[in-house]
Structure formats: structure tokens, C-alpha cells
Computed example of a mutant assay.
Amino acid sequence: MEALFSAVHYWLVEHPAITQYEWKQGHTLGSSPLFLAVTVTAYLAVTLSLHRFAFLPPLSAVALRFITAAHNLILCLLSLVMAVGCSLAAFHQMPNRDWRWAVCFPANHTPPRGPTFFWAHVFYFSKILEFIDTLLIVLGGSSSRSRRLSFLHVYHHAVVVVMCYLWLSTAQTLLPVALVTNASVHVLMYGYYLLCTLGRRPRWKRLVTDCQIIQFVFSFMVSGLMLYYHFTGSGCSGILGWCFNAVFNASLLALFLDFHSKNYHAKKKDHEKNK
């Protein structure tokens, strides 16, 4: 067991490419504002074009199921690796095993380098990979597109890439906590989608949405602790990036609560009426 842990720790934390990682604005892959702007704009433009004009023919049911299953499996496993990798990296990188570091990076003393920021970079690119979610919805045909391509879906996929960019460019405080909780929820979410694609629809669909809402509530609770450290100490790094993150999370929480109410409360009422 110890040998297994050592191997995992080496490949997820101690490998030279990970320990020596450093985000250099304009030099590291994907670190320029132009890359960010082109990526998000292209996603929105392609999504709008495909949704309105549907110039690509829908995939066959067999091809769509195969590609969707592969995509969900990749993102489920990648989310698990990111959650484990960032957890081990944060514990390894925090000074003197002081847990406050995971909540409040010291202002002006936390350059975006080391294993924790390596996993933040992987997470950043994983959000671009998730754009395939939208493509698969569009290629699923008009009925799938109208049913699943919502404002919440497109808004979340576009803005989360900006959020992840700010995590790295500002060495944003709370980054490890946000990454681990989000990746953990995505393990559950993509695991659910994978099972659905394979024809085994679990009964815990509502659990996925509930966990997403709990994630946002938890982030606000931890943010309260971070703000306490920020105003009673020497400050926390990347506070402006955190402000963007907080506003984004608040908007997502409102949208998820609306989605939860429309999809579950309404169904519950209809079920009670039909009794």
C-alpha cells in the first residue's frame, strides 16, 4: 500500500514537470489574454451558429452513444485524477503543513508555480475539453438540442474558462478548495452521464444537482473564512480574481436553484396531483 501511495504521489506531485511548473503570463500554453478571448468567442460563435442554422447533420444514434460514452469516461477519470492530484499537491506545497494556506495564499508571496498550480492549469484546459458537451448536444438532433441546450449550460461552459484563467493569472486564493470540490462533483456528474449513455440510468439524478448546489454554498462558507484571514492578517493573494469567482458562483447558484425548482419541485407537485 505504501509503495502504491509513493508511486501515485510521484506521478501526481513529485514528477519534475509538475514540481517545476510555473505559469508565465504570455509564455505558458494558454496564458495570453488573446488565447482566452479567442477560445471563449469561438465557443459562443460556433454554438450559436450550430444551434440556429444546424448546418451539420446529426450523428447516428450508435455513433453519438459511442462518442458520448468515451467523452464522459475521459472526463470522469480526468476529474478524479485532478481531485486527487490537487489534494496531494496542496498538502505537499503548503508551508509547515499550515491549512490556512489552502484558504488564503499570502498576498505578494505566492507566485503561480508548483504542483498546485500545475493541476489548476490542467483544470483550465479540462474546461475547454468540456466544450465537447455542447457539440454532442447539438449533434444529437433537434429534439435533444431544444431539450438540453439551455442558457445555464452555455453560460457555465463559457464563463468557467475565464474563471480558471484568473485562478492562474492572479494566483487566486482558495484555488485548491475550489478545484478539489468542483472536480469531485464532476466525477459524480460524468459518472452519471456515462451510465445513462450505457443504458443504465441511475435513480440519483437529483443527487448530482443537489451536490452542485451544496458545492456553491460550501464555497461561500469557506470564502467567509478567507475574508476573515484577509482583513485580519496581511491579506490574501488574488482577491480581485476571487471577486469575479464569487459573483460567478452566485449567478450559477441562482440558476441552479431555478433549474432545481423547475425540474424537481414541479415534478413532485404533478406526482402528488396524479395520486
Rank of each mutant, 00 (worst) to 15 (best):
T47L: 06
A120Q: 09
Q212N: 13
N249H: 15
W11G: 00
S144Y: 06
L64F: 01
Q20D: 14
P111I: 08
I137N: 05
L207N: 01
K24N: 10
R201T: 05
L207S: 09
A54R: 15
S79F: 01
V161R: 12
G191A: 07
N274K: 13
L136N: 03
R52N: 11
L227E: 07
I67C: 09
T39D: 10
F117Y: 14
N72H: 06
R148F: 09
C86F: 04
L198Y: 02
G141T: 04
M1E: 12
A266Y: 13
I67D: 03
F125S: 01
V247M: 12
F105Q: 09
T232F: 15
P16N: 06
L36Y: 02
S143N: 10
H230S: 11
F218I: 01
L188S: 04
M226S: 12
C196N: 12
V177I: 15
S32E: 07
V222W: 06
P115H: 00
P33A: 00
F55K: 08
S31I: 01
L34M: 09
Q93G: 04
P112I: 00
G141F: 03
I239H: 10
A63H: 12
R201P: 02
F220Q: 12
L64D: 00
L149C: 09
V122P: 02
L4H: 11
V122G: 00
H71L: 06
R113S: 13
L73I: 09
K267G: 11
P176I: 05
N274M: 10
L168V: 08
A54I: 00
F216S: 03
M1W: 13
P202W: 00
V185T: 05
S31N: 05
A69R: 10
L34Q: 08
S237Q: 15
L48G: 03
R200G: 01
R97H: 14
Y229D: 13
S169K: 07
V185N: 07
A89M: 08
V208S: 07
C243N: 06
C86P: 00
H27R: 14
I132C: 11
N96R: 14
L198G: 03
F91P: 00
R148H: 13
F216N: 06
D270K: 11
L252A: 04
S169D: 15
A250S: 14
A69L: 10
R52K: 15
V46Y: 11
S79L: 02
G224F: 12
Y190M: 00
C86Q: 13
L4Y: 13
L44Y: 07
G141H: 03
I18G: 04
L175Y: 00
G26L: 10
R100H: 13
T197V: 02
P106A: 08
M163T: 03
S261W: 15
A3E: 15
N274Q: 15
G241S: 04
P57T: 08
M1S: 13
W119S: 10
V180W: 03
F256H: 10
V159Y: 05
G238V: 09
V161C: 09
Y124S: 05
A7F: 14
T19C: 06
T197Q: 13
N72V: 06
P202D: 05
R145P: 04
P115A: 14
Q172Y: 00
I128H: 00
H156Q: 11
G224N: 08
I18E: 02
D210Y: 05
I128C: 12
K267L: 13
S146H: 14
L252Q: 14
L166W: 07
M94N: 08
V160S: 11
E14W: 08
A183I: 01
Y21M: 06
A183L: 01
M221Q: 04
T68W: 04
Q212K: 07
F123G: 01
